[in-house]
Amino acid sequence: MIFRKVLILIPAYNEEANIATTIANIKKFTKGKGWDILVVDDGSKDKTYLKAKKCEVIVVRHPFNMGYGVAIQTGYKFAIDGGYDILVQIDADGQHDPKYIPKMINTLRREKLDVVIGSRFRKKTDYHAPFMRRLGMILFSLIVSAVTRRKVTDSTSGYQVIDKKVLNFLSSDSFPCDYPDADLLIMLYFAGFKVDEIPMKMYENKTGKSMHGSLIKNFYYVMKMSLSILTIVLRKVTGLPSF
């Protein structure tokens, strides 16, 4: 088997309570494989940076908070600089179970895919999202499925395995840094990348924090995402580059 350089990317913002446990859990499944773990501290106000540093992983830090999308894009740029073949993206809050990482990488290789997404809704699990968020997830998953003509069940999952050939695309300025999920999947489809999901179990967020926290943020998310999808489709229809 050809050895492939793998980077596990953990974007983190104010995650001092979870970061050490998340890294320890990941290390259980990556032990002896020579994979690197990168924490991108998105300008946390707490001790996330110091706690991650103690775990003996690579930690980079934004000088100030830039948002989730910018943090993961910093990770993509790091992966390109470091010549990594595969990037695994996993949340810092411990909601994603790292036991799926080998399975996701194997699926990527076996099916010759470009992106593999861990889906909470591919199979029935005991994961429960608040009603409004669930509604948004269903709506955008339906839109993505309709546009890409493939069944997409979890368009907002941050648990992903990405092949290196997608990283240059994701590092460009057309990457939707605000909320890179449903719109990004459509962009990837138009760019000709192969994306598929595998079922996974996701744990409830113990802190209750979410980047779509308040009602205003939820409203902004829905409006921004709808506009983003509309412009991507319009660019495609009018013959402009979608990315």
Binding site: I58, V60, H62, V70, Q73, T74, K77, F78, D173
Partner: peptide
């Protein structure tokens, strides 16, 4: 905003 984002990312990676 795009320029600031790129600068922040460059500084972060250069620091490392």
């Amino acid at each position: 905003a795009t320029q600031i984002k790129n600068l922040v990312q460059k500084i972060t990676l250069l620091e490392e």
